[in-house]
């Protein structure tokens, strides 16, 4: 029996399509239900909580509208935490992406032991935050830690590492670099390996030097992937928590206390879940704005 004509499906085909759609929805229903339960409900509930002054230990709380958000604008703790988070992002993202790109370019060469070198840089990415914290607390111990032993052995002055505000943030950036460089390395390496060799040959024939080949061949070819890596690292940097909470606990003198630590402490140490939810939603909004700006800049660049 024919179910289609030159003008489209017959009327007999429509009930079958409806049936197939219903069956498809039934198959997807468990997953959709889980999504609503595990993601949708908490998101809506969290936003509602941010409009209250709930304290889960006291069992108190009522609707306060946008009071929490208004207070955040003038909260010196939040401003300090946001400033620390921004500082970490500004330091971490360029360094991480640049080092990742350099390592990717190095590993894109026909080097002996390439696999072992690649594994060495990628394997820290598999570690948990707790393991990373233990390793680096030992390494950065200002009295006799591994790094200071190395510095001392080569005649350089030992550093206070995590003991002073400036050095503590530097320490956190260093820890993050070691821990997270594997991701940009892998992704950029894959992008580099996709660049046709003929482009480099053509550039060499045209007399381009190393820097010119990098600027006019490599960078444009990997630009979309590079922008994606930058965007993902930006989002990750705004969400920094483990290496700060476990290594410096936000110190010394609050110099490394970031927004997520403030959120955690407000909600789960002080039990002010209403205010903590507002912090979370504000951070999400900031990340969204940064992401939109980044994407807009990328699209404008591509349209040129």
């Amino acid at each position: 029996m024919s179910t289609a004509t030159a003008t489209g499906p017959t009327r007999a085909a429509k009930p079958r399509r409806k049936r197939l759609t219903r069956v498809g929805m039934l198959f997807a229903a468990p997953f959709l239900a889980l999504m609503v339960f595990l993601w949708g409900v908490p998101v809506v509930s969290g936003f509602w909580t941010s409009l209250t002054d709930t304290n889960i230990a006291e069992g108190t709380g009522g609707f306060v509208g946008a009071d929490n958000y208004a207070h955040l604008l003038t909260d010196p703790d939040f401003r300090a935490a946001l400033g620390n988070t921004a500082l970490f992002t500004v330091l971490n993202v360029p360094i991480l992406v640049a080092v990742g790109l350099l390592l990717a370019m190095l590993l894109n060469q026909p080097l002996g032991g390439r696999g072992a070198i690649r594994a060495a840089f990628i394997s820290p990415y598999l570690l948990t935050g707790a393991a990373v914290a233990i390793i680096w607390q030992t390494a950065l111990n200002p009295l006799g830690g591994n790094l200071n032993q190395v510095l001392s052995a080569v005649g350089l002055p030992e550093q206070a590492w995590l003991s002073t505000p400036g050095e503590a943030m530097g320490g956190v950036v260093l820890i993050t670099l070691w821990w997270r460089v594997g991701f940009p390395l892998l992704v950029l390496l894959a992008a580099l390996q996709d660049i046709p060799a003929q482009l480099y040959e053509a550039a060499r024939i045209d007399g381009a030097n190393v820097w010119q080949r990098f600027r006019y061949v490599t960078l444009p070819a990997i630009a979309p992937v590079l922008m994606l890596v930058v965007l993902l690292r930006l989002i990750d940097s705004f969400k920094v928590f483990e290496q700060v909470y476990l290594v410096t606990q936000g110190g010394p003198a609050g110099s490394t206390r970031v927004v997520l630590q403030m959120l955690y402490e407000t909600g789960f140490r002080d039990f002010q879940t209403g205010y903590a939810s507002a912090i979370g939603w504000t951070l999400a909004f900031i990340i969204l704005v940064v992401t939109v700006v980044q994407l807009a800049l990328t699209r404008r660049r591509e349209s040129r």
């Binding site: 703790d77 003991s163 002073t164 110190g251 010394p252 003198a253 609050g254 402490e265 140490r269 002080d270």
Partner: peptide, 21 residues
């Protein structure tokens, strides 16, 4: 005291700045 942990953090930050720096 309510939010004593946060209050204590301010105290710790101050004492660290004074003693170490």
């Amino acid at each position: 005291a309510p939010r004593w942990n946060q209050a204590y953090t301010y105290l710790t930050n101050a004492t660290q700045s004074i003693v170490y720096r």
